[in-house]
Design a protein around this nucleic acid. Structure first.
Length: 596
RNA sequence: GGUCCCAUAGCUCAACUGGAUAGAGCAGUUGCCUUCUAAGCAACCGGUUAGGGGUUCGAGUCCCUUUGGGAUCACCA
């Protein structure tokens, strides 16, 4: 697909050469969208050439404009505002673009083959002691969407999840359940597994604090009490037994983890996310020791007098970091070193994207640097997609303080809102109750997903539980609605997807041209979103496309167009918009209902 | 204390990576359903881009500084 930039770059360079006898690289010529206040499709900023021209900006722009218009039939006319050369591209060019792009089945997406570069995306990575909340939702939606975008941009993508299923924190819920649970199970209580385990995690915290309070009252210092209270000793003992493979502890661990996984899988399914491979820390936590040994031998790592192995990153502006405890056991970093190396053996990725909150920026900086120093060339491909926290009006969400927005609750709330609005509209009376339930889910999730994904991942975002997420305006359902309306029209016209053999009009309506220009941008948008790991780029684009279509819909009758030729063209244009909207929604993990 | 990030309309977010008169949605006011779905379209209202200085043809964007917020600097994960 020839973009306007491709079309104009060389001619602009030629114009500069001819008019001002100066050599510039065609690749250095850049364009921008024309400001809507002026007529034009693309704009050349001529400030970079005024020195070469030895003339004022207006005159420089005027000369280049005249030259381009004379040489290129695609340049219909132009106007000059200050140093901006606004070029109007002929309708014929846009018509040719539309004819080409409307015939491409996977328009805008690059095909993936066995030799395409491979990217691994790690996301979700939950703890198995509490249910998922809104922060996890952002992580999951980002990870899934980034993966889909990378696939569309031509990468082989491996989606992985690293489940944090071991450690002292897991023992807390296990211990509390042992002490207080009376054999309660998800079945006996009717509580979803992850919520049940989360309940005992909170119970432990209460129990523990109570014991510390008593001990302090009995004269111990708080620090002392914190370490010696029975509950603390018990979970430490439990962790030792777990690491020693104690049958009873392992059985309890397996049972309760099973409950959590059942619960997570339900939530994952509702969120529409999935993984190609799931790693468990209980399997990976011993990895990395050999890498550390190796690093010691190479002299990259140092053994401190107390026996701990460290890496000295002070020359890089960071600190010293412990990679192996003095007793020889692993830390978080050890495990991540080992996991990354093992993954690269299994999947020779070019990039490994970690979708992890920005609170771990330091960790990933160290991880990448350490691997590089240890001599792994692929370390260069590690990328920490460091997303901002979801904050509530009162600040960060904290599980223990109960100030979290639960994922399951929120999903339910969104479905209820979608149902309420749909029932008020009363347009889907003919649907089966099953189809209705599906629709409420699709619409509710669209609102939630778009709400989260339209925000730049790197920025923190705010969620106010007092205000429900909109279903109108700049939202997911708005875009779905545009799609459903087109599909409804195509059904009435008896058109499945598109009808070949249309004729483009000699003169495009302003809104038709605007739509073609938007469609024309789609491939570049996909590439940009992939290069920056930013679904918000796709979200913004899709909204603009839908918005533009709605304006077209209002201004241009399709079924009652002046002629059959025009009707067929507009049906094709609509079908093409529908396809692109559906695809770009899919990249965001949002479904496009046929009717709503 | 060191390092890093953030601050844009009453609210939630944009701004093509230094470009033209800073854009959307929500909220508020007001038009448009006897023509393809009004979850829509159109219009009005709303801004000293936290404050100050600098760099240049041009700054929300880059540099310095003040203020306010956040993260991180564990032999936790």
């Amino acid at each position: 697909m020839l973009t306007t930039e491709d079309l104009l770059r060389a001619p602009v360079a030629a114009a500069v050469a001819e008019l001002f006898s100066a050599d510039i690289q065609p690749g250095s010529v850049t364009f921008q969208r024309t400001n809507p206040a002026f007529e034009g499709d693309v704009t050349l900023v001529v400030f970079p050439y005024v020195k070469l021209a030895g003339k004022g900006p207006e005159q420089t722009a005027q000369l280049i404009g005249e030259h381009l218009q004379a040489k290129l039939p695609e340049v219909a006319r132009f106007n000059v505002v200050k140093g901006f050369l606004n070029l109007v591209i002929a309708d014929d060019f846009w018509n040719r673009q539309f004819t080409t792009l409307s015939s491409e089945p996977a328009y805008g997406h690059k095909p993936v083959t066995n030799t395409s570069p491979m990217v691994m995306v790690e996301y979700s990575s939950p703890n198995t002691n509490k249910p998922l909340h809104l922060g996890h939702v952002r992580n999951n939606l980002l990870g899934f969407s980034v993966s889909e975008i990378l696939k569309a941009a031509g990468y082989r993508v491996v989606m992985v999840n690293l489940v944090n299923d071991r450690g002292i924190h897991i023992c807390k819920s296990m211990y509390a359940w042992q002490q207080l649970g009376n054999g309660e199970t998800p079945e006996s209580s009717g509580i979803k597994g992850d919520h049940l385990v989360g309940k005992y995690y909170v119970e432990f915290d209460k129990l523990y604090k109570e014991q510390v309070k008593l001990a302090v009252a009995a004269g111990q210092t708080e620090e002392e009490a914190g370490k010696t209270v029975p509950a603390m000793l018990a979970i430490q003992e439990m962790l030792r037994k777990w690491e020693a493979g104690d049958e009873e502890v392992i059985a309890l661990w397996k049972m309760m983890n099973g409950w959590v996984y059942d619960g997570f899988n339900t939530t994952y399914k509702k969120l529409g996310v999935s993984f190609d491979k799931i790693y468990y820390e209980s399997n990976t936590y011993l990895l990395g020791k050999s890498i550390v040994e190796d690093g010691l031998n190479k002299g990259v790592l140092l053994k401190r007098p107390d026996g701990a192995v460290i890496i000295d990153l002070t020359p890089d502006g960071l600190d010293q970091k412990v990679l192996l405890r003095s007793d020889g056991t692993s830390v978080y970093m050890t495990q991540d070193l080992g996991t990354a190396a093992e993954r690269h053996n299994e999947f020779p990725f070019e990039k490994l994207v970690y979708v992890v909150g920005n609170e771990q920026e330091y960790h990933f900086k160290v991880l990448k640097l350490a691997l590089a120093k240890l001599g792994y060339a692929w370390a260069d491909g590690l990328y920490h997609l460091s997303y901002g926290m979801v904050e509530l009006p009162h600040g960060k969400m904290k599980s223990r303080e109960g100030t979290v927005v639960d994922a399951d609750d929120l999903i339910q709330l969104m479905e209820d809102d979608a149902q309420k609005l749909a029932e008020d509209r009363g347009l889907i009376a003919d649907m089966s109750s099953e189809a209705k339930a599906t629709l409420y889910h699709q619409v509710g999730m669209a609102a939630l997903k778009y709400f989260i994904l339209k925000v730049d991942p790197r920025k923190k975002m705010l969620f106010n539980p007092e205000e429900s997420i909109d279903l109108q305006g700049n939202t997911g359902p708005f875009i779905q609605y545009t799609y459903a309306r087109i599909r409804s029209m195509l059904r009435k016209a008896g058109v499945a997807d598109s009808l070949p053999g249309f004729t483009t009009p000699a003169q495009l309506h302003e809104k038709e041209k605007a739509l073609i220009k938007h469609l024309h941008q789609y491939p570049a948008i996909v590439q940009e979103a992939a290069a920056t790991y930013n679904p918000a780029v796709v979200a913004q684009y899709t909204y603009d496309l839908a918005k533009t279509y709605n304006q077209f819909y209002d201004a241009c009758p399709v079924m009652k167009a002046e002629s059959d030729t025009l009707k067929h063209f507009r049906l094709n244009l609509s079908a093409c918009v529908a396809r692109t909207v559906k695809e770009s929604l899919r990249l965001l993990g949002i479904e496009a209902p046929e009717q709503m």
